[in-house]
Amino acid sequence: MISWPCMLKLDGDDELIYLDSLQNLNSECSELIFSDDDYVIDSLGHCYLIEVISGKLELTKEDRALSTDEATDLIRAHEFNKASVCLTKIYFLTVSEAIGSLAS
């Protein structure tokens, strides 16, 4: 079962999108053209592929999970893209904390 909040990682883009619910995911994806390589990362680090099944968005859990360090690297790349935060000051203890930083 997916642990909210999550973040959406778009293939080939450092921008991350904060997602606080399945409804929020549906809203974000309705305006996006997403690829087969885009994925959602939940607060525990589990990765989910986004699929459209019978006209409805579904999340399919993958066998991989991100470590806190990997999630932190994604957040750093995202923040570097925005050029608004000193990257050396970005540090998290958990994946959930990393994802929560996107909410602000």
Rank of each mutant, 00 (worst) to 15 (best):
T72R: 02
L44R: 06
C6Q: 01
D11C: 09
S101P: 04
E15P: 02
V95S: 01
S96E: 13
G45Y: 07
T88E: 15
L87E: 04
C47D: 06
L32G: 12
C47W: 00
E51L: 07
S104A: 15
H78N: 05
A83V: 12
I33R: 04
G12I: 08
D42G: 02
S27C: 12
D36S: 09
D73I: 03
S27F: 11
M7R: 00
K56C: 08
K61L: 04
L102Q: 15
S104T: 15
D13K: 07
V52S: 15
L44T: 11
I99F: 07
P5K: 05
D20H: 09
D13S: 11
E51D: 06
D14S: 14
K56H: 07
S84A: 03
S101Q: 11
I90V: 09
W4E: 00
L57A: 01
M1V: 13
L10F: 02
V85L: 03
G45P: 11
D73V: 02
H78T: 04
L8N: 13
S35N: 10
S3V: 11
T72C: 03
Y18P: 10
E31K: 10
G45F: 03
K61W: 01
E31S: 14
I99V: 06
S104E: 13
D69V: 08
A65R: 09
K82D: 10
S27A: 14
W4K: 01
L102K: 12
K82R: 12
A98R: 06
E28Y: 03
E70S: 01
F92Q: 10
I50G: 00
S30P: 02
I41N: 12
Y91V: 11
R64V: 03
K61C: 09
F92V: 08
D69G: 01
E70D: 09
V40R: 05
E97L: 04
C47N: 03
F34K: 05
D42W: 00
Y39D: 00
E51Y: 06
D14C: 07
G100V: 06
V85P: 03
M1G: 15
T88L: 11
T88H: 06
F34C: 02
S3F: 11
M1Y: 07
Q23D: 08
L59S: 05
L25E: 09
L32S: 13
D69F: 06
G55D: 06
D73L: 11
S54W: 05
N26H: 06
F80Q: 15
S27R: 08
Y48M: 07
R64K: 02
D13P: 07
I75N: 08
E31F: 03
